[in-house]
Amino acid sequence: MPRALILIALFATSASGTSAATLRARTLPGGTKAPAAVIVGRAQCGQRTWLLTDTSELVEVSPDGVTVHPVRGLAGGDDPWGLACVTSGALWTIAAPRALARLGPDGRVLERVALRLPRVALFGVGDALLFEQLPTVPGAPVLTTSPPARPLETRSWIGLVSRRGASREEELMRSFVNCGLGRGGLVPCWFADEPRITLSDGADARSLTISFPPSVDSHYPIWDVALAGPDRAWVLLAALDAATGRRAGGRLSVVDDRGGEQEHLDLRPAARLILSATPARCLLLNVDGNLTEVSRP
């Protein structure tokens, strides 16, 4: 019996610790904390990262700290979702499923663009918006691009392809897509229920499958991704945060271009998302509202 326990312990150690935990974490000095409301959009514009909450707050994270702006000028019935920053620095959100809104840096709605088909996810790439619209069609690309103010000029984004399901409900449930922070026109996107990240520039795509230990939520394993260079990515893996009872990023991994984990760090407190990333450093927003900088040696 003791021998069996030792074997189990050895197996568990080898399964979860295939790479050394060499990443270092440092909580940044406190200032304004990010709101606790659910974050429904994230966009990066140069040195700034913007977050949008489901209580209509636009959160600006810059080297100077965190600033919260209430979103003003929404129409009745608006329920903003998604946030994208394009090359010009303009911020766009899906104000309502059939309306885009351009937000000023102070949170004011500056422009609205009507949409023919409802959009349900929004990201930015270069000077275009990258989005998912309904109805999804199994076998067709999930994501599409268009210039922000010309929504009819659409182009399919080669990469993730809508999957079939036993029922339409299952197809819809399998169509939830998220995209992380890209680099040089390359955007990492993934289906919420898959451990596979697809990297695409819109024309060419390749995938990497992430392996993860049992502590990670196997149903929805990938929480967030940021590309750190041509052959590396920071990947936040999902876990249940014991302190808050919420799902969040419980493990941060650095993976190579085949998805192999190079380094990792178990996060306490867990992280809500990645705010910015370079090859050597990654800035996280924690579930407690503080910021943590993780660096590689």
Binding site: V40, R42, L117, P118, V120, P135, S175, F176, Y220, A248
Partner: peptide, 18 residues
């Protein structure tokens, strides 16, 4: 399509919301 939109809006906070 509106039904599917309602469905996505119903489920996405729990799945995609951060």
């Amino acid at each position: 399509v509106d039904c599917e939109l309602d469905y996505v809006q119903c489920a996405r906070r729990a799945i995609i919301g951060r």
